[in-house]
Design a protein around this nucleic acid. Structure first.
Lengths: 347, 347
DNA sequence: GTTAGCACTCCTCTTTATTGAGTGCTAATA
DNA sequence: TATTAGCACTCAATAAAGAGGAGTGCTAAC
């Protein structure tokens, strides 16, 4: 059987209506509220066909039809009309000076959740190979040394080291030079035992400190490599009865709190299978890799903050989410983040 | 009417039983499972008295009794037997090197949630007046300057500043001396316009940079002053039917996500009204200042990490929470955090 | 190919028992 | 005077039965 123009129109009408109401859609509704001018009986025949083809299904014998995963998929792939959503607050917020990546990401998640009324998550941008850019030791007081470690992409980590011996300013200067000349530009894999022992030798009596600093560098890079994720609006799931029952809600909220699974989900998108052109991907129902979201749809978008720093934004809602709006909003935010980076760069 | 020994025993039995089962407790149950050797009829008379006195109440005419808020209060104040809870994982986790306060607090919240099966929250320790301890500018590359700001209590903040002019190492050294000599040891209120303009004058052509650094300092101190809160185990509320219905759960989860109200709640405890001796406080039902928790009990404990750095831990659960266990666990953790600080200090 | 008409299905909501745990009260007992 | 046995009564919870209605599939006519 073929999906002709009329069937498409009916399918679209069923899905649109179901997205709005969340109730099964009957033939009479379609007959009345479309410009097809067909009686409910005709619609019924067509709907029976659509059901046979797998695009819609009946919850029970005498109920209207609801879209199947296949139906949603067809809608998203072929019939969606992206709404170009203004994200007003977004603009205002982003203009503020945001030195801290963390604050920015939290805000994006928050605004997005308020805007869409779904649950949102966002992963911090990452480069694949983190290189060391800069190290600085300084004396905080007699017993404490501060090590500041800057990684490519201006990620900064701090570490307080306790020292026994009193260090002169000159010694610290020397250590700084030693550390920077030897380590700058290296990734974690490139800092090998050879380099380390050579440096310790050169440091002489202060070899121990060099060792500690190197440990701190390793830890800093590693910490940067595991994914930081911020979420918002998890309690929006209670807005949708099909997700709000105890078991489902509990599982979902747990997933959002644990964050580990979210990481895998977001990274799958960043890796970039499918939808490479736009960086936006839609998972419907069983398509999502995360089991607790099998009754949800997930829309993810990759964003780039220059330098190949890629992160991912995700929106989780019911299968009957407003795909048009969500995709539109995400695209707006992609653009805004891109602009933000450029602006910051030229500041 | 007086609360004699027998009435106390019966009250205790009612509460203990209700804590376990969550079901109203009948007279026959009490008669059978206590060593009072009284018939259910006698118990019924006593229970009628206890109800009149306000310690217990009936959900409806022909049901058993459940504790009232007043009943719980009496139990907590007079009849509780703290269980000295071993928090094994806690011990293991804390021994690990924890340079980052954030990681430590997240772990405490997490372990506590797993241990008690309630929702937990913890606020980062705070000093009242944050003094500047140390500033350091360094050149990351031609266009960027890194400002590291250390606040009393070894809280470290970073800031990248963009600069137009090329700065020599010597200039930076001078600026560092200028900043440290003028600002160290000052609180945010003590850095006034006089100091600022004097410094700018001394900095000459680099006045703009000084201005930016001072802004960064102000921001850093302010950021430190607003309360950071970490939560865990929010989805534990689904374990307790009396909290798991949609509306209540949604409100609670929202409170935990927004965090602002939690801050007020935790700070009320830190302020220290009541229970000063132990730093542990129990809010039952309507007693909590947070409306969404009116069907919950909240137990909070203040902890100290030396230097007058005080923070608060909170546990939120149903009114029939295992007070004995919760209070015992919190006390253990107080001790452990105290020991942790001492150990770190002598490292 | 389209439509009107009708019997049929099955969910939903309401109404009506039925059950059972637990009470309060009274009268008998120690 | 305190305790207890006994009994009628209450009321939530559960099940069973019935009414209503939205929507379908099918058939026959247009």
């Amino acid at each position: 059987m073929e999906l002709d123009e009329r069937k498409k129109k009916i399918l679209q009408a069923v899905i649109r209506n179901y997205l709005e109401t969340g109730e099964p859609v009957g033939s009479r509704t379609i007959s009345k509220y479309t410009d097809l001018n067909l009686s409910s009986a005709t619609i019924r025949n067509e709907m029976a066909d659509l059901e046979e083809m797998g695009y819609i299904l009946q919850p029970h014998t005498s109920a209207g039809r609801i879209p199947s995963d296949k139906g949603y998929r067809f809608y998203v792939d072929a019939m969606m009309e992206e709404k170009n959503r203004e994200v007003v607050e977004m603009n205002e917020l982003l203009v503020q000076r945001q030195d801290k990546m963390e604050t920015l990401l939290k805000q994006v998640a928050r605004v997005l959740a308020q805007n869409t009324q779904y649950a949102t998550m966002i992963s911090a941008p990452q480069t694949k190979r983190n290189k060391l850019k800069f190290i600085q030791l300084s004396k905080v007081d007699e017993e404490q040394l501060l090590a500041v470690i800057v990684i490519e992409g201006n990620v900064i980590k701090n570490n307080i080291l306790s020292v026994q011996e009193e260090l002169t300013d000159e010694t610290i200067l020397k250590l700084n030079i030693l550390l920077n000349t030897n380590l700058n530009g290296l990734t974690i894999d490139e800092i090998n035992l050879g380099i380390i022992s050579r440096m310790k030798q050169q440091a002489g009596t202060h070899g121990a400190i060099v060792g500690e600093v190197i440990d701190a560098v390793a830890e800093a890079i590693r910490a940067e490599e595991d994914l930081e994720i911020y979420t918002s609006g998890t309690n929006n799931i209670f807005r949708y009865p099909e997700l709000a029952d105890q078991q489902r809600a509990s599982e979902l909220i747990n997933t959002f709190e644990e964050k580990q699974l979210l990481g895998e989900l977001l990274q799958e998108t960043t890796a970039g299978n499918g939808a490479e052109t736009t960086g936006i991907q839609v998972y419907i129902g069983e398509e999502t890799p995360v089991h607790s979201m099998k009754d949800c749809s997930v829309v993810t978008a990759t964003y780039e903050l220059g330098d190949g720093m890629k992160g991912t934004i995700g929106i989780v809602g019911p299968k009957r989410m407003d795909y048009d709006k969500v995709v539109g909003t995400l695209r707006t935010i992609q653009t805004q983040l891109d602009e933000l980076y450029r602006k910051k760069d030229n500041d």
